[in-house]
Simulated scan of single mutants.
Amino acid sequence: MGGSQSTRKVTVDNEHAIQVSREALDRIQAQLDAKQAEQPVAQPAPQYLPPPPYDHKRQQEYAAEEAYWAQRIESLKRQHEKINSGMHLEYQKTLKEANELFNMVQGDKVVTKLAPCQEEKAKVLQCYSTNPDKTLVCSVLVNEFNDCVCKSRVAAVTASS
């Protein structure tokens, strides 16, 4: 059912299957000549003619329109320059504020470079190392360290505001 290809071959051995007589060729040639004679002779392509000269009224209208659009373009340029200058000023102002904030934060980091409550931290670590199995013995020192950290946070918040 169409699964295999056919092995049949067809060959044609007739090389001169169609022969045209000389009379038929003459009739075809005569018809072609008649058709060419019927076609009109090709006329030269029309040349471009310049537009008629403008009258004075049209010239004034075009001049007025040109002046309007030139004025409109200049107006838009001025508006664009105002917007650009305003944006440039805002950019400079924001950049200055950002630099001031950055410098302020950098100054605070330099001043408070050492973490607070270092002594209390050292005491807690010493207590834990000497009493590894008795962590509750160090609870008083841990509470002192916790109080110190809380006081440092409150001082940092009040200093920044």
Rank of each mutant, 00 (worst) to 15 (best):
N84C: 13
K134D: 15
E66C: 03
P40S: 08
V154K: 11
Q79M: 05
R78L: 07
L32D: 01
H88F: 00
Y68A: 04
A24I: 12
V154A: 13
L89I: 14
T130G: 03
A67K: 14
N103S: 07
N103D: 12
M87L: 14
C148A: 04
C117K: 10
N131Q: 06
P46K: 14
Y54A: 11
G86Q: 15
T94I: 02
T11V: 05
A24M: 12
L114W: 04
A156D: 05
K151L: 04
G107Q: 09
H56T: 07
H80K: 06
T135Q: 09
D13E: 02
L49S: 08
K57Y: 04
M87N: 13
T11P: 01
Q39V: 10
T94Q: 09
E66L: 05
E120N: 12
K113E: 09
Q29I: 14
V12F: 02
D147Q: 15
S21L: 15
A67I: 00
N143L: 11
V137E: 12
K109Y: 03
Q5Y: 05
Y68N: 03
L125M: 06
S6Q: 03
S161G: 01
L136E: 15
L76H: 01
V157W: 01
A70L: 10
E97Y: 03
D26P: 02
A17C: 04
K57H: 07
I18K: 09
C138N: 08
F145T: 03
S21A: 13
R22G: 01
E66S: 05
M87E: 08
Q19H: 07
E65I: 00
G3R: 03
E65T: 00
A24V: 07
R58S: 11
L125Q: 11
L114F: 04
R58F: 15
E144R: 15
R58E: 12
V110M: 11
V10I: 10
Y91L: 15
D26Y: 06
Q29V: 14
K57G: 04
Q126S: 09
I73L: 12
E81F: 13
D108Y: 14
E61H: 06
T130F: 00
K113P: 00
I28C: 11
A115L: 14
K134W: 01
R22I: 04
T94H: 03
A45K: 10
K121W: 00
E74I: 00
K109D: 02
P40T: 10
T158N: 05
Y91W: 10
D13K: 02
P132S: 13
H88V: 04
A156W: 01
K93T: 11
I73S: 03
K96N: 06
L76C: 06
E100C: 00
V149H: 05
K77I: 06
L32P: 00
V149N: 10
N99D: 09
P50C: 02
C127T: 08
A30G: 08
R8L: 04
I83F: 02
E119G: 04
S21C: 15
I28E: 07
E74P: 00
T7H: 13
P50I: 03
T11N: 04
Q5N: 11
D33P: 07
C138P: 11
N146T: 15
Y62A: 08
Y54T: 06
I18V: 14
P116R: 00
L141S: 06
R27P: 01
Q71D: 11
P52C: 00
T94M: 07
K57W: 07
E81L: 15
P53T: 06
K35D: 09
A159M: 02
L49K: 14
P53I: 05
